[in-house]
Amino acid sequence: MSDGNADTQAIATAYCDDGVSVDQLTALVGAKTAQRLRLLKADLEDEPLDLAAPEDIDVYDGDATAVETASDNDR
């Protein structure tokens, strides 16, 4: 799917919307891409983890550091 193929994207959308079965998906996009889409769909359908912020670590402890980024002319 990373190649931006419109057909593959349409198939992935159909699969996520339950319009295409796993067997059909595998036949259309191949086993590797089908597995990735199955994992993605399962992850998207899963409930997000409800994790509390750590109490023993202050990730913003100390002074903030500014970072100079290169301008387009410096690249």
Rank of each mutant, 00 (worst) to 15 (best):
Met1Cys: 07
Met1Ala: 10
Met1Gln: 08
Asp3Pro: 06
Asp3Leu: 13
Gly4Met: 01
Asn5His: 04
Asp7Met: 12
Asp7Glu: 10
Thr8Leu: 13
Gln9Cys: 04
Ala10Leu: 13
Thr13Trp: 13
Cys16Phe: 05
Asp18Gly: 12
Gly19Asp: 01
Gly19Phe: 01
Val20Ile: 09
Val22Leu: 01
Gln24Asp: 13
Thr26Ser: 14
Thr26Asn: 13
Ala27Lys: 07
Val29Met: 10
Val29His: 08
Val29Leu: 14
Ala31Ile: 03
Lys32Val: 02
Lys32Pro: 06
Arg36Val: 01
Arg38Trp: 03
Leu40Lys: 07
Lys41His: 09
Lys41Arg: 12
Lys41Leu: 13
Ala42Gly: 11
Ala42Met: 12
Asp46Lys: 02
Asp46Gln: 01
Pro48Gly: 03
Pro48Ala: 05
Asp50Cys: 04
Leu51Thr: 07
Ala52Cys: 12
Ala52Asp: 15
Ala52Tyr: 08
Ala53Phe: 05
Ala53Thr: 07
Pro54Asn: 08
Pro54Arg: 05
Glu55His: 14
Ile57Asp: 01
Asp58Trp: 09
Val59Ser: 03
Val59Met: 03
Gly62His: 02
Asp63Ile: 00
Ala64Tyr: 14
Ala64Asn: 03
Thr65Asn: 12
Ala66Gly: 08
Ala66Met: 10
Val67Ser: 15
Glu68Pro: 13
Ala70Asp: 01
Ala70Asn: 00
Ser71Thr: 10
Asp72Leu: 07
Asp72Arg: 09
Asn73Thr: 08
Arg75Ala: 04
